[in-house]
Design a protein around this nucleic acid. Sequence first.
RNA 1: CAAGCAGGAUAGGUAAUCGCUCCGCCCCGCGGAGAGGAAAGUCCGAACAUCUGUUUUGUGGUGGUUUUAACUAACGCAAAACAAAGGUAGUGGGUAAUUCCCACCCGCCGUGAGGCAGGGGGUGCGAGCAGUGACGUCUCAACCGAAAGGUUCGAGAGCUCCUUCGGGAGUAAUUUCAUCGAAAGGUGAAAGUGAAACGGCCAAAUCCCUACCCGGAUGAAAGGGCAAGUUAGCCUUCUUUUAGGCAGGUAGCCCGCUUGAGCUUCGGAGUGAUUCGGAGCCCAGAUAAAUGAUUACCACUUCACAAUUUAAUUGUGAAGACAGAAUUCGGCUUAUUUCCUGCUUGGGCU
RNA 2: GGGGGCGUAGAUCAAUUGGUUAGAUCGCAUCCCUGUCACGGAUGAGGUUGCCGGUUCGAGUCCGGUCGUCCCCG
Length: 114
Amino acid sequence: MIPKRNRLKKKKDFEETFKKGKRLKSEFLEIRIRKVNKKDKKIAFVAPVKAFKKATERNKMKRKMREAFKGLMKNLDEGVRIIIIAGSGAEKKSIEELEKAIKKQLVQFKFLKE
RNA sequence: CAAGCAGGAUAGGUAAUCGCUCCGCCCCGCGGAGAGGAAAGUCCGAACAUCUGUUUUGUGGUGGUUUUAACUAACGCAAAACAAAGGUAGUGGGUAAUUCCCACCCGCCGUGAGGCAGGGGGUGCGAGCAGUGACGUCUCAACCGAAAGGUUCGAGAGCUCCUUCGGGAGUAAUUUCAUCGAAAGGUGAAAGUGAAACGGCCAAAUCCCUACCCGGAUGAAAGGGCAAGUUAGCCUUCUUUUAGGCAGGUAGCCCGCUUGAGCUUCGGAGUGAUUCGGAGCCCAGAUAAAUGAUUACCACUUCACAAUUUAAUUGUGAAGACAGAAUUCGGCUUAUUUCCUGCUUGGGCU
RNA sequence: GGGGGCGUAGAUCAAUUGGUUAGAUCGCAUCCCUGUCACGGAUGAGGUUGCCGGUUCGAGUCCGGUCGUCCCCG
């Protein structure tokens, strides 16, 4: 789990990131990202009911994504607000595959130092 | 061995590394705790909270009358009773309470172990549509044909018999009068259809009655507290600007929020559901929402392969259910892994 | 977290108090019309009433359970 201070928790923050954030899409993931003029980094993970019907599946998906993201945290740019949304099909991917997919997108658009 | 019936338990473990949430402390750290039997469906029942009825009684109490005392409208608190709607239904018991649970009785089903969304009283199948045909039983099974066959000398001279084929009903299921019943409805007579409506039995999870239970509504997003910003208004300061306070309660935060009809264990009461007493224990409280990831070893089950080979054992590999707390409990229902116990029926061997 | 509705032919909807063979429109198929297509006409096929069980002489309808789907509160 990501520590509390790095979670995107407030409803207002969340909505802003969701609406105004840049949209990066891949086969089974969607990332919304936005930079604000602050020093902290905040992230949230979403597993929609449409893609994952049961509560257990949603929990599992979110845990997988968190685990995949863990290593990327310290190299992230300051002030980023990220929401990562899992699509259907993502539950079959391993943690390494998820990590690669996230990394690829973030590096490509220069939010993450390698 | 096969098929089945009933009941119960279980929901992998240990270690290391990297993380998350909460709590504690001698706070750069260390220690402790961290999903379920169904957390699910939301089908019932309660706790708790707020709002809200009518009547009566008690009580507090501001105001009023008033010398005091006393009386008393509003309002608050407590208790009791109650309409409608709704619910329940063998007898007795359990519980905070239930549509739940337990014991027993009767009825029905099953070869049996056992099971039942069986259990107040009453009323109630002539409704389907035109037919060999009206819940079941009993009664009645008739008619027409130059359609075919049989029997027969002959079935197209006529009569009669058997089989097959074809054909043929009601504006159907009401109306009128009288009468019984609290009601649903019944009974009698007349008319009408039919071969038959006469009689008896069984039928409400559609109808009626009785007895009993219960004030009602909304649900933790209940409800309460603190309170940025903004602000109509009020007060203070001041020539004004301004500043401060009050009021208000939005965003946000906090409480509610986990000690409870609690768990473990011992003893007593009871056939049992359950209950009484003692001792010990504290056992998730998140909120875009923690309880995870990786590796190793050890168990258990299943499958595949190989070896020994009657059975079985050993080794290797793979796989391992349903499912995620959201105020808290008690039931019910549904999903699902593995195992155990007792019993029944049938077959085989000794 | 809490509450409510709806599942009937390929599609959109009906079905009285439980009572005939579950009906209508569009679509579909075949034939006719035409030189051909459309239009038009005729005929026809198509249903486990979401699923499982119960009550009943009889269930789309009544009662339980289950699955799916849509909506409301915030």
